[in-house]
């Protein structure tokens, strides 16, 4: 019962050229684990999630690598995917406003998962839908189940999305920036709900976010993405204590912390390399203060205990020296 992504390459054939969005992503999620994926905009977080859910469309293509669930590939067109997606692995999206069908009742959208995957009758599915709405904290679920998305507020729509995604008691829930489109107060409620479900249902969650604070609050492990690869992955506590990859160090340095006096926020200079060019070296080396000749060669993702890191100089402090000088 594990989800494993091995050496995943995804490219988009666009008019402006070929975008190598993922260039060898490796990750796996253990049962009941909460994995955070962080990284700059365009680093490939959403594409990774979409690939797992079979949502990569032309002009995008999975060029290489594997995605397996219980040892079986989700990439074959043999219908295995459609029996897993929505049932054992489900996903919620960033924008609950447009992610629901505007012309179907909330109930109908929940029920179709139940009838398709669990073979429930219409009445059974409806009862379960009411229970699910109650479980995600929607009051008056019996009335709400027959309403349309436009009658729900943003936060409630995201709750309905979550109800839909947990309908079949999945093992893994992928949440791609589930709170970005919501009000700050509602954001906290949705994250609380996810945490509650995670412990209540023993759900593994992959949480994609920009916000390291959210990761610290909800996740056990973090994977840091940069330019289409995972550059570092370890437990949340360790990554805040001892970030290994220079990029992670920079990322933490540019995040405000409550336990330190507010100083100037330091951003990482430069921009990520274009995904159009094929590059054999470490993608971060142009912005990395400790880059050396060795970095012209791609560092492999090395696993050491619970820590995975793709850097030729793991753990070497990259920024302090400059700050002092």
């Amino acid at each position: 019962m594990t989800l494993t992504v091995r050496d995943l390459h995804v490219a988009f054939e666009t008019r402006g050229g070929r975008v190598n969005a993922l260039r060898g992503v490796n990750l796996s999620v253990a049962p009941g684990e909460t994995l955070g994926i962080v990284g700059e905009s365009g680093s490939g977080k959403s594409v990774t999630a979409q690939a797992i859910m079979g949502l990569i469309d032309l002009p995008g293509r999975i060029e290489a690598g594997s995605i397996t669930w219980n040892g079986k590939s989700l990439l074959e067109g043999d219908g295995y995917g459609t029996s897993v997606w929505g049932r054992e692995i489900s996903m919620i999206f960033q924008d609950p406003m447009t992610s629901l069908n505007p012309l179907m009742t909330i109930g109908a959208q929940i029920c179709e998962v139940l009838t398709q995957h669990l073979g429930m009758t219409a009445e059974q599915a409806r009862e379960r839908a009411v229970d699910l709405l109650a479980a995600v904290g929607i009051s008056g679920p019996r009335r709400r189940v027959d309403q349309y998305p436009h009658e729900f507020s943003g936060g409630m729509r995201q709750r309905a999305m979550i109800a839909m995604s947990i309908a079949c008691n999945p093992k893994v829930l992928i949440a791609d920036e589930p709170t970005t489109a919501l009000d700050v107060t509602v954001q906290a409620q949705i994250l609380d709900l996810l945490a509650e479900l995670q412990s209540g249902l023993g759900l593994a969650i992959i949480l994609i976010t920009h916000d390291l604070g959210t990761v610290a609050g909800l996740c056990q492990r973090v994977a840091v993405m940069y330019s289409g690869r995972i550059v570092e992955s370890q437990s949340v506590d360790a990554i805040f204590e001892r970030p290994q990859h220079p990029y992670t160090q920079g990322l933490l340095r540019s995040t405000p912390r409550l336990d330190e006096p507010a100083t100037r926020l330091l951003s990482i200079e430069g921009t990520p390399p274009s995904l159009m060019q094929a590059d054999d070296g470490c993608a971060f080396r142009k912005r990395c203060p400790i880059a050396a000749d060795a970095c012209k060669e791609m560092p492999p993702l090395v696993t050491e205990g619970a820590v995975q890191i793709a850097c030729h100089f793991p753990g070497r402090p990259a920024w302090q020296a400059r700050q002092a000088g």
Binding site: L55, G81, V84, W85, F93, S99, L100, V113, H117, M164
Partner: peptide, 16 residues
């Protein structure tokens, strides 16, 4: 539309 992506992520087939 994004709602189609949601339906696909729910495991709904093309025909449906």
């Amino acid at each position: 539309q994004p709602y189609v992506r949601t339906a696909r992520a729910k495991g709904m087939g093309r025909a449906r």
